[in-house]
Design a protein around this nucleic acid. Structure first.
Lengths: 225, 225, 225, 225
DNA sequence: AATGAATGAGCTTTCATTCAT
DNA sequence: AATGAATGAAAGCTCATTCAT
């Protein structure tokens, strides 16, 4: 396939010797990466096991060997996606900041994460189309994500105690608003962008909306009727 | 000959009395109603032409007779859904109200419409999964929905002229925020509800969030840093 | 495929015009015939839907169109096989004959039917390998075959009343013995024939065994310890 | 990584302590025991190498290491089953008994063996479904079982010489009848039991039929037309 | 001698669609 | 204008088996 002559990027991985991959864990991650793209792009029903296999170093048979079924593969994709957002959330470390700064930081982080991970947003969309069947069945996902509310709760209490936050609001409701404002512009990028003729991926638009969303949440908590 | 179990060539028996239904337009609407439910419930790829036919007064063959293909049927479903929200939007009649009242009314209407039409929300989700391919191809949908921005634009101008709205904000950004806050709690009902153990369909929750969302938008526009 | 020249047996069936069969009922029977052979030859698990399709005028798809699944096809094959033996049983008309003649006629008929229908015997073997799951589920098969016991019961009563039959015996036990003696030489044709080096399909062997089996049953009923 | 659901590469954990079992012969017997059950239960085509491995102390790989292929494993299962019935037959020791007693003993032994070994009966059924391909190929099986005819032949000759047996009958035919009457009630337990609503495993039924079968064979040989 | 990892080939089944009147 | 019958193509999945040490 490669003609003779100088070949610079001779990949030093052992795997292609006689077609067998040496590293099962790497193969599994490879499959998960591709499956994430496929399901995020086409949905669960629209995603094709064949298509995943074709873009992988392995065969379709290996997908079943490692994951058992299309459904189980989808579960693993989703579990990993939810695990990742949670891991990063832990780095936030809002406790040391004053309430308003902490709030702004939380919103900005949420904004940035959604903006940077459209595939995660799409997986969540797809999971909602399936009535969250997998999330309902996975205690892991539920447990891993609930702490998000605790973070918001602690922040709210601190802000109110300090007299900075003027509003009464349920932690879950605040979390919902922040999520909504960060999620929608990614999830509905295509319909909204098309209908209103604006490019939601444009960096300038992103910056403008990032400030607006943060200000909206802040102005709500910091004022009162 | 066939024992239990579904077999394709089940004679359609009584349903299509004497073989043909009298009213083609009614038949088409019937198909569209069922198709809307099916696509909203299962997505485009997950939706089954057979399943639509089975819950219709006609046969699968008629779907192809009237709509040509699954894709065209989906287009019609989407077109109708977008047409409907637009029709109702026209009743809003915000011009006669003072800016703040008009703004609150706009948010409340948007909130109520999304809350009352989860199938519409799901169709929009599905269309986004498909990268808005249909919306991109349909001038009708685009034209019918753009006026929404004009409404917001006029309202913003009037509010600023009157000195009521203190913020500089792009009409499209305001529309985005209102939509996001109303859409997310319906679109992500299942994942959000499951993870944070709250019922987003509960009337009390709805009322609380309706007020909160309206206040959030209002407080943003009516205040300044 | 056929070279030019005189072609005597031009089958007058219309079916092969443009590849579509005109007669669905005939197609179904065709599939059932081939499926009977396939399942009888290879068992349920060993039978291949592809193999059935290949020997049919239709495609594999049609098998699913008409029968829904491999399992349902197998059910239909079995139902038809049981229906047939029952239909023929009704022609026996033992009532008019004296008890001994009637008994001999019953045995001979049973012998001949098994001998002439090895595929039926094989289907029964296969059904027993599957613990009669289909027979258990089919009221039709059970109802259709139970009358066989009534025939035996009536005959036994008549024979005892007339003083011809000297033995006390349960109808179901007599039926079992007759069946066993007629069934085994067909069901175990291959192992028995191979091990003991005899051809159980040889007409002379069949005649000898037919007489023997009949005499065995008769001698049992007509004598007493 | 894998949530619920069976996946192939489940680590075999504790089972093969330190990776290797000490006793190869014991392992082989273990595999044969499980394989006998599996093939007897599901047939050759229906039996699964995976299922056998799962219920064994070893892995699927070992089955291939020791037996080479599914087919060879099946052969070994069958060989062992035939070897066993033969071994026990040798204990019969009919020579010392008078002809009628010996005959009754032979029938009763055959009856009891079949009744006690339904798996053997099922293996023979399965082998017949496969047209005795294995038995045909195995000189061992053929040689080991033919003596059964010699036993019957000697008995018949002795009985006729003594004037006790009145019938002319081929040894192979007598063996066939005895086998048929003992085999059928086990082989067709499920279909016969279901259709005629009787439990052929009930001890009282067994006793009744045991006597009947023995009497039938005896009455046939001891009487003449 | 023994084994964990991997797999090609082929299985049953499903799907949107068209044929033929 | 309307429809019953049929179907090609491809999907998800399973099976006995071999690779490579």
């Amino acid at each position: 396939m490669q003609p003779s002559g100088e070949v610079e990027n001779l990949t030093p991985d052992l795997q292609s010797q006689s077609g067998r991959s040496r590293d099962p864990e790497r193969t599994k991650q490879d499959i998960l990466d591709v499956a994430t793209e496929e399901f995020a792009a086409k949905g669960y029903a629209g995603g094709r096991v064949d298509a995943i296999a074709a873009r992988t170093q392995t065969t379709k048979r290996m997908i079943y060997y490692y994951f058992g079924s299309k459904e189980l593969l989808y579960s693993c994709v989703l579990a990993r996606a939810y695990r990742r957002i949670r891991q990063i959330e832990e780095y936030l470390d809002l406790e040391r900041l004053d309430p308003e700064t902490a709030l702004r930081r939380l919103v900005e982080f949420t904004f940035d994460y959604h903006d940077a991970h459209p595939d995660f947003v799409r997986l969540v969309m797809i999971e909602n189309i399936h009535n969250a069947e997998y999330v309902k069945s996975s205690e892991e996902v539920r447990n891993a994500n609930r702490p998000a509310i605790v973070i918001v709760k602690n922040l709210l209490e601190r802000g109110r105690r300090d007299g900075v936050f003027k509003r009464e609001i349920e932690p879950v409701d605040l979390h919902l608003m922040i999520s909504a404002l960060c999620y929608y512009r990614v999830s509905n990028r295509h319909t909204f962008g098309t209908i209103f003729d604006c490019d939601l991926t444009d960096p300038r638009v992103r910056e403008r909306q990032r400030r607006m969303v943060t200000d909206t949440i802040a102005s709500f908590l910091l004022t009162a009727d």
